[in-house]
Design a protein around this nucleic acid. Structure first.
Lengths: 207, 207
DNA sequence: GATTTACTAGAACGATATTCTATATTAGCA
DNA sequence: TGCTAATATAGAATATCGTTCTAGTAAATC
């Protein structure tokens, strides 16, 4: 199980390579969405993208490699969208609520990505795992930096650091999970109000 | 893929069969805990339990069948434990807090079961799926019945029914997930106070 | 005791992820 | 431009693993 190549992409070759990888990624997303990760075969992905197994393994190392890149791509879209929307908030309350509403809007708009992110059965290669940890750390740091001034100003409760994320995002994530598995009907975006309010309630300073 | 046999267990044969099934279940739990569901092979389970493939398939139909029974067993332990502890509560506030503290106590005490319940990559047979839905429905009903009088009495907020579970249990479940994946160190039981308080805060009637 | 049913065993099978070998294409450079 | 090394593609071969099949054993029932 050798790691896939990662080379400087110069000229025509580079863009062609990037396109091919993109085709495979797109085909994989389609297959995973239709049949789930476990049930899509690499033959499926090859058929859908029109590439050979050799080519797929050359670029991604293995099936997990494909899923890993797709997963990371999805995470980065989600994270970037949050930071963008968070920058526009002008009060702590709206910032906390935004964490919830952005998440529910995003998963409602991109259920295929959401399903992938929640699926849990994607095992990662060592390198993807490390990269993911790094991305998570960076994102959390950026979000905490946004909130930090308000904590200092006494507008947000001081809590054990590792509890903020579950307190604010836990309920909407839990609801989303149930929605993806078909246990509840209403889209996350339709019930975000309740969860956004609860999130602010959980971290605001009592009057 | 024929369904496994399910016969009346009478005499020596019956107990021997039950023991054998139990051995397989126990071996499976051990393997899943050590290597994860996907990476344990049925050969692993057979080796660990000392049975043959034929025997395993006779009793459980397939690998999912083993995981399904284990999963259901775990869920039922968890649910029964909650209902037992909930019955001893004498106020709404303590009941809501109990939902959180019981969960965190239980997953801390049974991390192997917790890992299985959170793993997400167990696909179920049709019958296991239906049984699971039934169990979930019954449990939710029982829990809601306990809380109902308090809602009627105006001591708990009236919210969309499908939001109670995420509001109360979402944060601790989310935290547990992070704990199981190694992203946070403290056991759920060590931070349950914050989440129990938040749960009550989310559903209590404002003064 | 005979017969049916439940159980066990392990070989055989089929599907699928992965590796291997060969070939083609492109980039870099003399 | 032609040569060489690095990249990329293709598909056959391999290995692993879930599942099925066939045969044999033990227990229950009559």
């Amino acid at each position: 199980m050798t790691e896939p190549v990662e080379k400087s992409a110069s000229g025509r070759r580079g863009t062609a390579t990037a396109e091919r990888k993109q085709q495979i990624i797109a085909a994989a997303l389609k297959c995973f969405t239709e049949k789930g990760y476990e049930k899509t075969t690499v033959a499926d992905i090859c058929r859908e993208s029109g590439c050979s197994v050799g080519s797929l393994y050359h670029h991604f190392g293995n099936k997990e490699g494909v899923a890993g890149e797709l997963f990371i791509h999805a995470i980065e879209l989600l994270n970037a969208d949050l930071l963008r929307r968070l920058q526009r908030c002008r009060t702590v309350a709206s910032g906390v609520r935004m964490v919830v509403t952005q998440y529910s809007d995003w998963v409602t708009a991109h259920p295929d990505f959401a399903r992938l992110l929640h699926s849990g059965d994607v095992e990662f290669t060592e390198s993807a795992h490390l990269r993911l940890r790094e991305i998570y750390r960076g994102h959390i740091t950026a979000v905490f930096e946004w909130f930090h001034p308000y904590v200092v100003a006494g507008l947000m409760r001081v809590l054990p650091p590792e509890t903020y994320v579950p307190l604010i995002s836990g309920p909407i994530r839990d609801y989303t999970r149930q929605w993806l598995s078909g246990r509840v009907q209403k889209e996350p975006a339709q019930v975000q109000g309740v969860f956004a309010e609860a999130a602010w309630n959980a971290v605001k300073v009592e009057v």
